[in-house]
Design a protein around this nucleic acid. Structure first.
Lengths: 322, 322
DNA sequence: TTGTAAGCGTTATCAA
DNA sequence: TTGATAACGCTTACAA
């Protein structure tokens, strides 16, 4: 039919016919059947998104960004949850790829070798989010978790803390790289004491932050600051300090990671590493959509960076001067 | 082909043929094309989920529940975000319905009249989550926000607070019903003072909790407790109390709503109304999936209830006795 | 600029 | 128990 053309290439249909078709469409409330489109065209308007968690604040923000910029476009988001399992991720990639998606958005750079092979074989455009690294499959947008942790650790040292520790939960690859950054700086400064590194594979919660903090203090009571793998842990650690009568930032400095909204509202406000999660999601989608329309970005890898947001929880200098 | 039959009704294919087909499928790595299935069968395996927000912790938990129980089933979740807009919701319902979904999961009971009409015309099975109410479209699972707020308010009174206020953000219908419950009890007790009700249409954050708290205290300084529409506000209010040197629970009682994990970790731990969000999502999906397999629940409406989790933030009695 | 014809991969119906 | 045949609603290629 000419209808199909009127919808996809309006320019190639005469003004009159187009108007007529439009009118009839309105009257009938016609909508193209996506299944028939997919079958006939051999491609779908589905963009698959594979993340390790739908709960985690971090991925929730990225997803929100993706949904934000996908609304009103012709692209349909289809979500897959790998639950931090490379096996699950591989299964999801297979499932998605079988459905001839228009594009794929993947979290991270730590796919299994099989997954990598699947992805490299595929011709569909894709973008990796959350991190930057070597050999992107296609597009990539994120930041260096290693550098973020390095900067935060350096900040603690600059604020006068000399015995900083690290609290980490859910040891996914990004947590690992943050821990590596922490270690890197402390080794440089000759301040590394592995007793002050407390981690657990459990998913991160505020409660867990308190528990890890207690654990740290029993192992290394003279620890004077912590870098937390994320803000939940930092908040839990703050509450634990309050319960123990430890003054933050004077007795103890706390730095979070991600800069969730509540960090600024806490008492004292908590220093954190701001990451641009919403923007990451929004831009990831747009890069992909643009590429699908034939306008790939000039640079396939985008580094969104991070910022150390200094707040009271590490402002020891000022407090000790009071 | 017999292949199609072997896949869908294995019983109707001979043992031998079935085995042969199975072998070939394995060898070729064959997967049915969902688009072709949808087109030929006139139905999809898509379950549409329409929520007002993907960010909000509450819906995030419900969605997680849905994803949890949908994994490993033949049903595909497709998410739509109405952004708290009835117009958007109607658009989404139209879009979904046009794709002949297997089922629908909808948040709430406050659809526009047009949306209601669309939904009632549709033959597809659906379940409303988050609330319970009259005239479900089909299935329904949730709890009474009105009763939850009533119980929480009564709890404040029982703990000895006589001038309780209410903090509310994002005045969606559920917030409204919670506020109604709060008003209801206070009117009963002759303790209602509308000056102590502070609300804003802004989305709820921890920071906003602090601001609303400040607002409340400037309007009605002798307020001695608050029921917050949600836990973010409660946490923000707690921090604001800390900054003002108000002792919680002695000078001031705080009760949240939803019982997010961090409520138990706070200092003092915050009383909250526990709602069963994860379970709501999980069961909503299962009810729907079961109904689609021909096993609808005995009772179409499931009330999941709520619990008042009493913690230190409202334990005035005990503290004043110390 | 418009229309015709074939086919996308599956399911449903019916006949063998 | 199996296999032919005709849809399903669209897109693509080509003809008018």
């Amino acid at each position: 039919m000419t209808v199909s053309r009127a919808l996809r290439e309006p320019a190639r249909v005469s003004e009159k016919t187009r108007a007529h078709i439009q009118a009839v469409i309105e009257k009938l409330g016609y909508t193209p059947d996506p299944a028939a489109q997919a079958l006939a065209a051999g491609r779908t308007n589905v963009i698959g998104v594979i993340v390790p968690s739908v709960t985690n604040n971090v991925f929730a923000d990225v997803m929100r960004g993706i949904y934000n910029s996908s609304e009103g476009t012709r692209w349909q988001i289809q979500l897959g949850n790998s639950r931090y399992s490379p096996i699950q991720e591989e299964r999801l990639v297979r499932t998605f790829l079988n459905q001839r998606p228009a594009g794929l958005i993947l979290a991270g750079i730590d796919q299994s070798d099989e997954t990598k092979a699947l992805l490299r074989q595929s011709t569909c455009r894709m973008v990796q989010v959350m991190e930057i690294g070597e050999n992107p499959f296609d597009l990539m947008i994120g930041f260096s978790h290693f550098d973020g942790a390095r900067s935060a650790t350096r900040h603690l040292i600059e604020m006068g803390y000399r015995r900083p520790g690290f609290l980490g939960a859910r040891l996914d690859p990004r947590t690992q790289r943050r821990l590596d950054g922490f270690r890197d700086i402390l080794r440089e400064e000759g301040l590394l004491d592995t007793n002050r590194i407390v981690t657990t594979p459990q998913p991160s919660t505020v409660t867990l932050g308190g528990l890890l903090m207690a654990d740290l203090l029993s192992r290394a009571p003279d620890t004077d600051a912590i870098l937390c793998n994320n803000d939940d842990l930092a908040l839990g650690a703050l509450f634990e300090c309050q319960r123990r009568g430890l003054s933050v930032p004077f007795d103890f400095g706390i730095c979070g990671f991600n800069d969730l909204e509540m960090m600024a509202a806490a008492n004292p406000a908590i220093t954190s590493v701001r990451t641009h999660r919403l923007e990451m999601g929004e831009r990831a989608f747009r890069m992909l959509a643009d590429a699908l329309e034939g306008h790939p970005p000039d640079e396939p890898v985008v580094d969104l960076g991070f910022e150390i947001i200094q707040r009271e929880s590490t402002r020891r200098g000022r407090h000790s001067a009071l």
